[in-house]
Simulated scan of single mutants.
Amino acid sequence: MSDADRSADGPTVTIARSPIAAPEPLVPHRGWEVSGRRSAAALTITDLTPLAKVAVRAPMDGAVQRALGAPFGRAARDGAPALDGTLVVGSGPGEWLVLAPVGTAGEVREQLAGIVTEAGEFGTVVDLTHGRALLRLRGEASADLLAKVCAVDLSDAVTPDGAAFRSSVANLVTDVVRDDAGGVRSYLLHCERSSGQYLAAALLDAGAEFGIDVDGFRDPGI
């Protein structure tokens, strides 16, 4: 998950790397190696694996869910006062995935543990940052691309902005979140780390007819 690299000043620093091959130029970002590539294409794919990813499990429809502000099947930004700058995803019954800026996993995990304790319910909080891969598709053709590899109805009536679901994408179990960015249709796709490169390659292949291009990581990423 990480290697020892040498910085320009000489000392050894630890650089974490995504399982998804990053196009050059490669640049360091808060302990991660990311792509600095910039694309103006109408449809882009971006590797967001460096984002903090923390999983929460607690009773469905309980105090923790009310505190997080995201029921099953929905995503909410800044669901709790302590979680400013995050995206909380109701990824399953009694399951939540909290996405936050790079390098904040420890802080977010502590905040979530506090929420669970205050709720008085049995729950677990686990940092998944280095164990999962995360991608963003952005562009009006993103739904057309996903329709080629996913059988879910992606119309606005069924999966509007903020919808979250778990489905097969290119024959891979994937958490999908409709998360429009700047008024442009956009989807987050979350999977096991070991499948990240496969998912990225499958999406690039399916998006070739739409002119998909790779766009590098941009802070804050969510």
Results as ranks from 00 to 15, higher is better:
residue 198 Y to W: 13
residue 16 A to Q: 14
residue 183 G to N: 09
residue 7 S to V: 15
residue 136 R to P: 03
residue 55 A to E: 12
residue 28 P to H: 08
residue 35 S to G: 12
residue 178 R to H: 03
residue 7 S to K: 09
residue 111 Q to V: 07
residue 35 S to I: 02
residue 71 P to T: 14
residue 165 F to Y: 08
residue 113 A to K: 06
residue 98 V to I: 14
residue 27 V to Y: 07
residue 49 T to E: 08
residue 114 G to D: 08
residue 49 T to V: 11
residue 189 L to C: 03
residue 184 V to W: 06
residue 112 L to F: 02
residue 125 V to L: 02
residue 74 R to V: 11
residue 109 R to F: 02
residue 130 H to C: 04
residue 26 L to C: 03
residue 84 D to M: 11
residue 203 L to N: 01
residue 132 R to P: 02
residue 84 D to C: 11
residue 93 P to A: 15
residue 30 R to Y: 10
residue 32 W to H: 03
residue 198 Y to G: 08
residue 31 G to I: 04
residue 98 V to C: 00
residue 30 R to L: 15
residue 123 G to R: 00
residue 18 S to M: 08
residue 155 S to W: 05
residue 160 P to H: 07
residue 196 G to L: 05
residue 112 L to D: 00
residue 123 G to H: 02
residue 16 A to D: 13
residue 151 A to P: 15
residue 127 D to E: 10
residue 217 F to A: 03
residue 108 V to F: 05
residue 205 D to T: 11
residue 95 E to I: 09
residue 170 A to S: 12
residue 22 A to S: 12
residue 93 P to C: 01
residue 131 G to E: 12
residue 9 D to F: 12
residue 62 G to W: 02
residue 50 P to L: 06
residue 103 G to M: 05
residue 13 V to I: 15
residue 142 S to Y: 00
residue 55 A to P: 01
residue 184 V to Q: 09
residue 113 A to N: 10
residue 110 E to L: 12
residue 161 D to Q: 09
residue 198 Y to S: 14
residue 90 G to F: 01
residue 179 D to Q: 05
residue 81 P to W: 03
residue 155 S to C: 10
residue 125 V to A: 00
residue 74 R to F: 08
residue 222 I to H: 08
residue 53 K to T: 10
residue 11 P to S: 12
residue 16 A to H: 14
residue 92 G to K: 07
residue 136 R to F: 01
residue 94 G to C: 10
residue 204 L to F: 13
residue 193 R to G: 11
residue 16 A to P: 01
residue 8 A to Y: 10
residue 195 S to M: 15
residue 71 P to R: 10
residue 155 S to I: 05
residue 174 T to F: 05
residue 81 P to V: 07
residue 213 D to G: 12
residue 107 E to Y: 11
residue 199 L to A: 08
residue 179 D to V: 06
residue 87 L to F: 03
residue 22 A to G: 05
residue 85 G to A: 08
residue 213 D to Q: 11
residue 115 I to A: 04
residue 197 Q to G: 06
residue 32 W to F: 10
residue 73 G to T: 04
residue 134 L to Q: 04
residue 214 V to G: 01
residue 61 D to R: 11
residue 178 R to D: 03
residue 99 L to I: 14
residue 94 G to A: 13
residue 204 L to K: 09
residue 84 D to P: 03
residue 12 T to W: 14
residue 22 A to E: 15
residue 26 L to Q: 07
residue 30 R to W: 04
residue 116 V to T: 09
residue 182 G to P: 10
residue 147 A to M: 10
residue 59 P to T: 11
residue 94 G to H: 06
residue 167 S to Y: 04
residue 200 A to W: 02
residue 8 A to E: 14
residue 65 Q to D: 15
residue 195 S to D: 14
residue 145 L to P: 03
residue 189 L to F: 01
residue 133 A to E: 01
residue 73 G to P: 03
residue 164 A to S: 14
residue 163 A to P: 05
